[in-house]
Design a protein around this nucleic acid. Structure first.
Lengths: 131, 131
DNA sequence: CGGGATCCGGTCGGATACTG
DNA sequence: CAGTATCCGACCGGATCCCG
């Protein structure tokens, strides 16, 4: 027996007990979106990734890399050089979800002006009530 | 003068100082994905939304609804009945991003089996080393 | 019904120091 | 270079109580 989502067929993220919600939690995350987005442009070494995703700490980078590797979204290849060389690359699965996350990032960039004007109109509301 | 991302053209979420990274942070979020996904199937009242997104607390629901409303992703309509009736509906913008987030949720459900087997293979690794 | 306000534990996540 | 380990503050997010 194990933690299932429901009895019928596939999984349902809208149910609190569904184990696949953890996956959504890992993927629907700012750092994940940026990391997979960077890797979508090709394999990166640790330091390259760190620089590509500006502002991420090495702790978060390592932590997310491990989780993403564990879930099969990327591979970690160590070349026995000195100093060590480690390369991260997307798997097929990683590329699939990466595409969706890249779409999200791209959308955020492209439509930020619309969002900001929506924000201004919202903020300047209750100061000049209805009439 | 204001906080810009860079000088040339549009915004860049990969830069730490880019204000549009906040938008990505709001969107690339488990609750946001599920809420917009539920609203993509039509307008919902507060309680309906609470039940559709199983496990969300009313605090998180309210908080995210306010932010999403402020950024123009959904509208909040109050009908002067007793007891009050409040309806939430996606805007055009909300439907656009919602589509990407629904894709992410759907993908997570559909591919959870692949992820779980990747997870098992990863976990059963260092116990039986190379040779 | 649709919230606001508050308390509070747990985790997120940055900063720093150390290693092969 | 590519991490691991630890400290610690911030805030995420659930539980509870209250209101119009």
């Amino acid at each position: 027996m194990e933690t299932t989502c429901d009895q019928d067929g596939p999984w349902d993220v809208y149910l609190r007990s569904c184990p696949c919600r953890d996956v959504l939690d890992l993927l629907a995350n700012k750092w994940t979106a940026l990391m997979l987005g960077a890797l979508a442009r090709g394999p990166h070494r640790f330091g390259e990734l760190r620089r590509a995703v500006d502002g991420i700490s090495q702790k978060m980078l390592t932590q997310n890399l491990r989780q993403l590797e564990r879930d099969g979204f990327l591979t970690r290849t160590v070349y026995p050089t000195t100093p060590p060389t480690v390369e991260y690359a997307l798997t097929e699965m990683g590329a699939e979800v990466g595409a969706h996350l890249v779409a999200l990032s791209t959308w955020s960039q492209a439509n930020f002006d619309r969002i900001r004007s929506a924000r201004e109109s919202y903020d300047g509301r209750e100061l000049q009530p209805v009439r």
